[in-house]
């Protein structure tokens, strides 16, 4: 499905249909958590969610038309942001709690058992609180999540990228997702003069999600290096790819 052929409304409908299922941890360890059991739970859940995330990305109109190289680069860059924004959306109605999954709901203070994670929990809770204040709507969330993916890395977008066709397609895709978000805001009934403010407020969230993701990535890397938690398969690849890119 080419994004240019879709109206903003159709684009949003496709995003709704692309949504991944809610994942369960299954076999949650008994509370109270230890550092190892909490990290194991979080990484196990993340690994499951990653598989669904890739399926979700492939359903975003036009994503699979990008070069495979660009698809990989975008997903490698944004995977933790996508997990985090999903977490924030699930937690939006539950102040003080992080709804990692229906069977993994954590209070802020439960983060005390893992060195360095409380800072990240606080960032996640603060950003979730901001989403709540903004009364973020489901369709706005879907557009923002897609935008995080498509905007994840500048290299596929830049002039002189390795695949100019893919670069052009990505630019069209970014325009399409912007049109979709603008359409969603316009349909909300907000007065015209407030619509651009709302757009700006929503877009300003994205840098905070990126910041939380960067901190989370550093933390996960340190946990792995200290052997607090084994990281394997897809999650290991995504972690390595993200940290290697920084170098």
């Amino acid at each position: 499905i080419y994004p240019n052929a879709l109206s903003p409304e159709q684009f949003v409908i496709t995003l709704i249909e692309a949504e991944p299922p809610n994942v369960l941890l299954m076999n949650r360890p008994k509370k109270p958590f230890t550092e190892a059991s909490m990290m194991m739970s979080l990484t196990k859940l993340a690994d499951k969610e990653l598989v669904h995330m890739i399926g979700w990305a492939k359903k975003i109109p036009g994503f699979v038309e990008l070069s495979l190289f660009d698809q990989v680069r975008l997903l490698e860059s944004c995977w933790l942001e996508i997990l985090m924004v999903g977490l924030m959306w699930r937690s939006i109605e539950h102040p003080g709690k992080l709804i990692f999954a229906a069977d993994l709901i954590l209070d802020r203070d439960e983060g005390k058992c893992v060195e360095g994670i409380l800072e990240i929990f606080d960032m996640l809770l603060a950003t979730t609180s901001r989403l709540r204040d903004l009364k973020l709507q489901h369709k706005e969330y879907l557009c923002l999540k897609a935008m995080i993916l498509l905007n994840a890395n500048m290299f596929p977008l830049a002039m002189g990228s390795n695949d100019p066709d893919s670069s052009v397609k990505l630019r069209h895709l970014l325009n399409a997702i912007t049109d979709a978000l603008v359409w969603v805001i316009a349909k909300s009934g907000l007065p015209y003069r407030q619509q651009s403010n709302r757009l700006a407020n929503l877009l300003m969230l994205l840098s905070h999600v990126r910041h939380a993701s960067n901190k989370g990535m550093e933390h996960l890397l340190s946990m792995r290096c200290k052997n607090v938690v084994p990281v394997y398969d897809l999650l290991l690849e995504m972690l390595n790819a993200n940290t290697l890119q920084d170098h």
């Binding site: 598989v51 890739i54 399926g55 492939k58 699979v64 495979l68 698809q71 990989v72 997903l75 490698e76 398969d233 897809l234 690849e237 995504m238 390595n240 790819a241």
Partner: peptide, 13 residues
């Protein structure tokens, strides 16, 4: 990222 490429390249749901 072999697994990522594999998942992207497959057409299976």
């Amino acid at each position: 990222s072999h697994k990522l490429v594999q998942l992207l390249a497959t057409t299976a749901e």
